[in-house]
Design a protein around this nucleic acid. Structure first.
Lengths: 186, 186
DNA sequence: GTCTATATTACGATAGAC
DNA sequence: GTCTATCGTAATATAGAC
């Protein structure tokens, strides 16, 4: 089992899910333990009965969130190019750009994982491998799946740093167009 | 002129250049003003004679750094596909992944600009437009240039969050392959 | 123009009551 | 298992000397 046995599992799960939203919105490193714990209705005192420190929470967030993203793509019918394009368009949408707290963890927290301890990166690597493996089944080619992830994560990351919706639409539209071009090369 | 007149310009420029390296390596939000100022041999007291607050420094870093990245691509001969590919391969290299402090500002700080004030995003947008305009001239198509930036930024961001060189090479290699495929569609 | 010193607030983490 | 209270440190920003 993934969580330690006992009744702690429920609180821990809520802590991970709720603090993930805050971390995706404001950033993990700049968010204090008090604020992170409060998202689950807890105090920092309780927090340290679930995690040895902040670093462990980031690893748990990354693992849970990447699993969620993977699940979102897992339902796609491998034979349906249309379903795949709908999922890609949703990822590369203004709605996703506008709501990081509800979106994929990659554009928001990947750059923080890059500065985290090796154990955190190991969790990230394992979870990303599973995500790209699932996407590879749907796309037909594993290498292309990886590139589509990079393209989409980069586009959303950049779009969020832009000031105008006009510029955001340009970046997202360009990414959607290139995603189609890449899928057409198969 | 871009900087206020007087002798302050020199110290300010050093402050921006030096603190950019620290911000790219450790993150901007989690770096204190003391540490940022110290990279230029200054104290926080002196810092506030150059900037009204941290936010202004991030805007200055983003502007200067994106200009540097743009300059790196500006020397490419538009007729030479080979020069373009060399530049893209350098961006999508393990060396770039391993040295964020000396690399492009986009994979490291774009997600922090996303949480910064609108004025910071406005500076980012203007500078990114200039960068993609230059790249558009070299590539031949502005839309494709934007997608190549997104693809490259995403790949480097993700590669840095991975634990093993093996996984990093996979992500970077997949991005290089797709960049070539996209350029071949022209 | 930069320093030292400091005001004030927030941080990560722990101790002990319930 | 969670709370309140707290320790020690570090954050942003300012004041005043030089």
């Amino acid at each position: 089992m993934r969580y330690p046995k006992g009744q702690k599992a429920e609180s821990r799960e809520k802590l991970v899910r709720a603090s993930a939203s805050l971390a995706k919105q404001r950033g993990f490193g700049v968010s204090g333990v008090d604020a992170l714990a409060e998202t689950a209705g807890l105090t920092s005192g309780a927090f340290y009965r679930h995690f040895e420190g902040k670093d462990q929470l980031l690893a748990a967030i990354v693992e849970t969130e990447l699993e969620t993203t993977r699940a979102r793509f897992a339902t796609i019918d491998p034979a349906s190019r249309e379903q795949l394009l709908i999922a890609i368009d949703a990822y590369l949408s203004l709605a996703h750009v506008r709501h990081p707290e509800a979106g994929c963890v990659l554009p928001t927290l990947a750059s923080e994982v890059a500065r985290a301890p090796d154990e955190t990166k190991a969790v990230f690597e394992r979870a990303l491998r599973e995500l790209t493996a699932v996407l590879g089944e749907k796309v037909g080619e594993p290498t292309l799946a990886s590139a589509l992830v990079s393209l989409s994560v980069g586009a959303v990351t950049i779009a969020r740093a832009l000031a105008s919706d006009e510029a955001r639409r340009e970046v997202l539209g360009a990414a959607r167009k290139s995603a189609r071009a890449l899928l057409a090369t198969l």
